[in-house]
Design a binder for these strands. Structure first.
Lengths: 197, 197
DNA sequence: TTAATATAACTAATGTTATTAGTTTTTGCA
DNA sequence: TGCAAAAACTAATAACATTAGTTATATTAA
């Protein structure tokens, strides 16, 4: 019945592209409308204003991230799985900086959709940690730690927080190794898959 | 000679207060002017527009953070120093969320003032790491790791990334312990070029 | 095939904010 | 006392988000 022009998916992809290239501040209804050859108010037929756009993008980004992470972790376990997870996480943040940023900037982080998309990520991590030998609260604390490590590194890298001319990949590998070694120590057990090289 | 009304320090304190309470998005020239009982254009006599305000606030925040961290670390060494540093870091991020956010959101992270304020922080950490037994690149990688851990935790906590009802302080202690244990392991292993596959 | 309807996209209008230009006012010093 | 510097002001403009109300088109039903 309607005039079928736009489509929510196309709209979100275009918005994500703007966020990735112009930064999150550069994503406005005006720039998005221009990119889509449409007048600004037309966007209101698809999203609930700028906050609504950002909310949908957050979920969209979380889903994309989850897909990449699942892909990386599947078929692996122990340190191996966590390293693959970590590398995929950083790779996503690097390749889609704006979209990654959005995943942590939902207008309302307690909105059901955002919470659920985030939960899927945590669930994936819980499975990894369980297979790793960590259960219940131990697993949850470890998950918070890993997320801190990964988000902290990705965020600082993106924001230019690392000024010095020092190999970033090496810094990241060392950080992840340190975290894994620390988890092993805390757990007071032998590494599941043989530990560090 | 001039009409002495405002003062850059007062202005920055007011701006930081807005950022801390309303969030960084709530800090506009309009809200700041209202808080100071002044018309918006008057602010241009003190800062170079909104970007200029943010730039000055970034430096201001970095200085405040540096002061707290120095205070916490002085007189300590080893793990003790790093734990105190980490706790002070998190405490600052919690007590001044907006200002902390600003420290990593300079309009131009490569501006000399921002770079220098950041460098003071790194210098402090270099001293800690040296006293800890880590030198040169090893120290720099460890510093990047520690900053990632601290910023990641602070950022996720602030953005509501930790949804579950689990003791945050315990999560943080465990994370820091894991990182420190990991650093110990790495340090005792391959100091010079500890290459991964 | 045609008419009705739902809805996408539009124009017009309003309010907020940032910013610039130009004016007024006040303070400190000659 | 008067002058110059600079802070604060008014006025004006542009960009953006948002709302209200209109137009046009695609699908469905007659």
């Amino acid at each position: 019945m309607p005039r079928i022009g736009l489509d929510l998916t196309i709209l979100l992809q275009a918005a994500a592209e703007i966020a990735d290239t112009q930064g999150i501040e550069g994503l406005s209804l005006a720039t998005l409308a221009k990119k889509l050859n449409v007048r600004t108010p037309s966007l209101y037929n698809h999203v609930d204003g700028l906050p609504g756009l950002r909310a949908k993008l957050s979920v969209y980004g979380l889903e994309q991230l989850h897909a990449k992470l699942t892909d990386a972790a599947v078929g692996r376990s122990g340190d191996d799985a966590i390293r693959a997870f970590g590398e995929a996480y950083i790779a996503f943040a690097r390749s889609r900086p704006g979209l990654y940023d959005l995943t942590l900037r939902a207008p309302d982080p307690h909105a059901p959709e955002v919470v659920q998309a985030g939960k899927k990520l945590v669930d994936l991590l819980v499975r990894l940690m369980n297979g790793y030998g960590l259960e219940n609260d131990d697993a949850l604390h470890a998950i918070r730690g890993l997320r801190s490590v990964l988000h902290g590194f990705a965020s600082l890298e993106q924001k230019g927080g690392f000024g010095l001319p020092l190999d970033l990949d090496k810094s990241f590998r060392l950080l992840l190794d340190a975290f894994l070694a620390g988890i092993h120590t805390i757990r007071s057990k032998a590494p599941v898959d043989g530990g560090q090289p």
